[in-house]
Design a protein around this nucleic acid. Structure first.
Lengths: 194, 194
DNA sequence: TTTTTTGTTGATTGACGAGTCAATAAACTT
DNA sequence: AAGTTTATTGACTCGTCAATCAACAAAAAA
């Protein structure tokens, strides 16, 4: 039965299954067997391809981060002007793809992972820096010197909205989150001179 | 050696040790033995007094939440007027007591716990409701109809600032966090009529 | 003084889970 | 055809950990 060229397929399936399982159980206490089973293979194969649980987690994290990054980049392509670009970033952050319970749950647990695993911390730091730099780029023309604090605040607000989504029951509402973040911005941008 | 009336002392020590260990390792994967050792007793005694690991976690959570609540209440006593009261809440939230790596790490993991343990979810929900109600009480006289959204946004921002603290290295800076939250508020309160 | 209650632990149990390995099989290479 | 590489798994090892238990000690109650 063994067909060749399985490696990328298996790996992709495992990464997806990892995200799903972490999101489903809401914790990192998932067994390699659970993940492998969901991905339709034995746990031994998961070890074969990834070498260990931690590497699997990190691969899943990279995947989520890269999906998010791609979505932001995509949204930025069709946005002209600072205002539109910032809105695009927010839309991407709270898009149905990213703002799903499963994915949000995974994010939360990546933060936990970052406390123990340096590589996870590094990855999250990269995400934060990139977000900040993106926001800064478009905030500077709008608010000048204050752009720095604004970007920091907005970043924290986004993370906070994610965090709260974890606890909420009922379906996710990305629109509301975008509105909240926009309100934060708009009120800050109202004063022209000071 | 056994002296009587040990129960409350042992329990308090265990709760404290639990928070410390969760904060130190940054995860819920702490063994009862670790906790008991830090609290200066055998793991069997921990089981004797709390019945199980989960109950111990919940007790720790209640303790953190109640400390936080007490600090907020205390700060509110010496605050007159909505503006001062809101500032007091922010100060308490980011006070050196609560805004320590150890405690912040514990909070993060309580969010994770809330995904699996209904009682943990309930406790966090109570905290969120109380914070919201406190903010609302003082935002209404300041911003009227918008108070609702404002309270939600501010709540999320506070959580987000906590979350970011987890990743940061270097000592915690509560002042900066308070400033950020105040900035959020001030800009929102600037428009008198709309 | 016996008995009961409270405090305490070392040793044990039982489950579970990460990682390894030997074995099997299909596909490619020579 | 013989040998190599890739895919795949069941069975096993080894460690860890929550939870239990039997036993001991001291204080309080009887």
């Amino acid at each position: 039965m063994p067909k060749l060229g399985m490696e990328p397929i298996r790996k992709a399936a495992l990464v997806q299954a990892t995200i799903t399982e972490i999101g489903r159980t809401g914790s990192l206490e998932v067994t390699v067997s659970q993940i492998a089973k969901r991905a339709g293979m034995s746990s031994a194969l998961a070890h074969h391809y990834f070498g260990g649980k931690e590497a699997l987690f990190l691969a899943a994290m990279r995947h989520v981060l890269s999906l998010y990054g791609a979505e932001v980049r995509g949204a930025l392509l069709s946005a002209a002007g600072p205002q539109a670009r910032i809105t695009a970033i927010l839309r991407a952050s709270f898009s149905p793809t990213n703002f799903r319970r499963e994915v949000v749950g995974a994010w939360l647990n990546f933060y936990v992972l970052a406390q123990t695993v340096p590589e996870a911390k590094r990855l999250l730091a990269i995400y934060q820096r990139r977000l900040r730099s993106n926001l800064l780029h478009d905030l500077r023309p709008l608010s000048g010197a204050r752009a720095g604090e604004l970007a920091d605040g907005l970043g924290a607000l986004i993370d906070g909205l994610y965090l709260r989504e974890v606890l909420k029951d009922g379906p996710p509402d990305g629109e509301a989150a975008v509105a909240c973040a926009r309100a934060y911005l708009d009120s800050h941008l109202k004063e022209p001179s000071l």
